[in-house]
């Protein structure tokens, strides 16, 4: 699994961190997404897919 985030689209809702805090973080100054792990382990795959599904700005893309 490869994760791609779009910082331009991100609106800092924090939903990705709530869903998968080991894979996503938020930038200190404005809450914009920070990708901690672009190739998350299989154990986190479901959480990461959920993070992408609940991102209101559609800023997370997953390439299987």
């Amino acid at each position: 699994m490869k994760v791609v985030v779009d910082e331009e689209k991100c609106v800092a809702a924090g939903q990705c961190v709530a869903a998968a805090m080991d894979v996503f973080d938020q930038r200190e100054e404005d809450g914009i997404v920070v990708l901690l792990d672009e190739n998350p382990p299989a154990a986190l795959a479901e959480d990461v897919r959920n993070a992408a599904a609940v991102c209101p700005a559609l800023a997370i893309r997953i390439e299987e």
Binding site: V17, Q26, G31
Partner: peptide, 12 residues
Amino acid sequence: IRRMMTRPFTRP
């Protein structure tokens, strides 16, 4: 405007 307001409300 939004990015001036988001900093204090991040999930962490």
